[in-house]
């Protein structure tokens, strides 16, 4: 590397330090700092708390298991983030996961091969996301109402297609996907990491990302600037549907069967992770790492409470308290 190239970041870094040094103490009492880093602070806090109280919590095996358990939620939270960034909300997310799983199971049972099954599952959930987007923008119906409607519609569709019965999916590919390791992480974790990287680049380093945040923050100004906000919204919902499809593959791989039952905690936790991640529910402000860490934090919470033998009754209460606290802190965001 040439000398000037080396110098440039160094001087920039020094500049940052000079700026931040006097504010370090101020930083800690600035509520905005806590709001921005709520999920990280929460995760670190939980890791310390559970690490001290439960000897197993910090073991490598438990960390690996926890990351595996978090993978599905991380992928879903990313999908939800794109929608929330446009000031929308996707309530049909968990139902889409169920439908994707059912389609995967049926296509596989029909003998079309596992890759066709996975592709069709993702295609179907993406189509549902697309449809959500079109209904919201072209139909001018609030996001909440449209996705509430599709939540119920998809639930019915899943039951009709499956006849209400689970389908076994005995595929070596999915079995490897669920239980195989590459380096320190299981494959589902790598899928989640890849999703985080792709989404991060899309949000921060592409024109689409800029348009997305503009659409969420100031829809009118954005369209005045020539951004086709409707298309951006449709794209956000389609991405959400796509993520639901990926999650459905991970889900079927994890439990070995496609079941027409909706896991409502996935939906609630995806919204919770987005809130914990510092994404504004009014749109225009988003990050990908934040919700991903939020999802990790929610998984760590349940894992730690289980290790501490806390009754299952208290676990949803703990999640609720933490989400509301995070939302309260969020009020101090700049």
């Amino acid at each position: 590397m040439s000398v000037p190239a080396d110098n440039a970041p160094a001087s920039r870094q020094a500049g940052v330090r000079e700026e931040s040094r006097p504010s370090l103490a101020a930083l800690l009492i600035d509520p905005s700092f806590w709001a921005d880093w709520a999920s990280v602070v929460g995760l670190v806090g939980l890791v310390i708390l559970f690490g001290v109280t439960s000897p197993v919590f910090l073991s490598v095996a438990n960390m690996q298991a926890m990351l595996l358990a978090a993978a599905i939620l991380v992928v879903l939270s990313i999908g939800q983030t794109f929608v929330v960034a446009t000031s929308g909300i996707d309530l049909s997310l968990a139902a889409s996961v169920m439908l994707g799983a059912v389609i995967l199971g049926l296509v596989h049972a029909a003998g079309l091969g596992i890759f066709a099954a996975c592709a069709l599952a993702v295609l179907a959930t993406s189509a549902i996301g697309f449809m959500n987007g079109v209904l919201i923008t072209a139909g001018r119906i609030p996001d909440f109402v449209v996705t509430l409607g599709t939540l119920s519609g998809i639930t019915g569709l899943g039951l009709i297609l499956s006849g209400g019965e689970p389908t076994m999916v005995g595929s070596t590919f999915l079995l490897k996907l669920a239980s195989g390791y590459l380096g320190p992480f299981g494959y589902p974790v790598w899928v989640a990491i890849a999703a985080v990287l792709v989404a991060h680049v899309a949000l921060y380093h592409t024109r689409f990302g800029v348009h997305l945040l503009a659409t969420g923050g100031q829809a009118e100004s954005a369209s005045a600037l020539g951004i086709r906000t409707n298309r951006v919204k449709i794209a956000a919902y389609t991405i959400s549907g796509f993520c639901a499809g990926i999650a459905s593959i991970l889900l079927v791989a994890r439990i070995g069967s496609a079941e027409p039952q909706i896991n409502t905690s996935l939906l609630l936790n995806s919204v919770a992770a987005v809130v914990l991640g510092g994404v504004s529910l009014f749109g225009g402000r988003a990050s990908i790492l934040g919700p991903a860490i939020g999802a990790l934090m929610l998984t760590a919470l349940v894992n730690g409470l289980t290790l501490l033998s806390v009754s299952a009754f208290y676990q949803p209460l703990a999640v609720g308290v933490i989400v509301v606290l995070a939302a309260l802190i969020m009020r101090y965001q700049k």
Binding site: A69, R254, I255, T299
Partner: peptide, 25 residues
């Protein structure tokens, strides 16, 4: 004895996660 439970009847993965945690103990 320690009794853990799924969050609801649809929480197939959550139940597996809790068992995974207990399996380490």
């Amino acid at each position: 004895v320690t009794v853990q439970a799924a969050a609801n009847m649809g929480d197939a993965t959550g139940q597996a996660d809790k068992l995974t945690a207990m399996a380490l103990q």
